[in-house]
């Protein structure tokens, strides 16, 4: 009996300890960055350009570049993801080989390492599409689209975040009660009228969730843009799709590993990290909140 008690205590405390360990990781990582970063985050830091060889000044170009990246990414990725989700929930026969193939493709896409998306962006968008565009549009030898830029980086990111959008929107579409679909169809509405007027308006929150989660993911990923468009130092804001851009995550990476005097810019590194964290978590929390409301609706 005593042996059992000891075992019981050790098993339950081992599990509790593991849970505590996870909480500790979260607390330490977040705490460290918030404490170290908050003193450097000032209005000037958020709105200024890097100066003195990036050892002084702000990070506005990186904030702007990140913003532009996720906007272009969303414009491309969210509609495609939403329509794919509509296909999977509304149109596809769940057992048809085509639908299963698409589902498999979405799952596979979700598992591809981020760096491989970067390779794809380079091999497909830059070397194949971009180079072909240059050959067709520009005088021979000139290079405009066949090199890294914000368009190719955004498109690469759009494909990476596609599964995020698809899964969230699917969940939202499934949460629309069958009764509403049937009511609409029984009134003589066609399938598309039903989707357009009943299903989609009632899953807006879910679609928004998908979009936000994708943006949060896109803002946090660095590997895919390492060689598809992010620039080391570019105080000028991009004003064309064929320009390179600065980006928050890439800026953190560069500042903390590649700059000549890493120690001197520690404050900037922490502050940039804090900005990125705040950005992704603001997005994540709004998505969690929205999803919570969707689930509540579903229960209702």
């Amino acid at each position: 009996m005593i042996k059992k008690k000891i075992l019981n205590a050790s098993v339950s405390s081992a599990t509790a300890l593991s849970a505590f360990f996870i909480l500790a990781i979260v607390a330490v990582v977040m705490g460290n960055i918030i404490i170290e970063g908050s003193s450097t985050v000032t209005w000037e830091f958020l709105t200024g350009k890097p100066t003195e060889g990036m050892t002084q000044g702000g990070i506005f170009p990186a904030i702007f570049g990140t913003f532009l990246l996720v906007v272009i990414m969303s414009i491309i990725g969210v509609p495609i993801g939403t329509i794919t989700a509509i296909y999977l929930t509304e149109y596809a026969n769940q057992h048809s080989p085509f639908a299963r193939l698409i589902r498999f493709a979405v799952n596979t896409l979700a598992g591809v390492p981020a760096i491989v998306f970067g390779l794809f962006g380079l091999g497909f968008f830059i070397q194949f599409v971009g180079s072909s565009m240059d050959k067709a549009l520009l005088p021979a030898g000139e290079l405009r689209w066949g090199q890294p830029n914000i368009l190719w980086a955004s498109l690469t990111m759009a494909i990476l975040t596609l599964p995020v959008v698809i899964v969230s929107v699917e969940e939202a579409l499934k949460s629309v009660p069958r009764e509403l679909r049937e009511a609409s169809l029984a009134l003589g509405a066609t399938k598309f009228e039903t989707i357009w007027k009943i299903v989609l308006p009632n899953s807006l929150a879910g679609m928004l969730t998908g979009g936000i989660l994708a943006v949060s993911r896109g803002a946090g990923e660095v590997a895919p843009i390492l060689f598809t468009g992010a620039a080391y130092f570019l105080p000028k804001l991009p004003n064309s799709l064929s320009d390179q851009f600065m980006e928050l995550g890439y800026h953190i990476y560069i500042m903390s590993t590649q700059s000549p005097d890493v120690e001197a810019t520690r404050g900037i590194q922490y502050a940039t990290t804090l900005v990125l964290l705040v950005l992704t978590f603001a997005l994540n929390f709004s998505a969690i909140f929205l999803r919570y409301r969707v689930r509540k609706n579903m229960a209702h």
């Binding site: 009660p177 009764e179 509403l180 049937e182 009511a183 609409s184 169809l185 029984a186 009134l187 003589g188 009943i198 009632n202």
Partner: peptide, 15 residues
């Protein structure tokens, strides 16, 4: 279905 309307067991007004 325009000609043959239907009322369901659980009332299902649109939101």
């Amino acid at each position: 279905r325009k000609k043959v309307g239907m009322i369901f067991q659980r009332s299902n007004p649109f939101p």
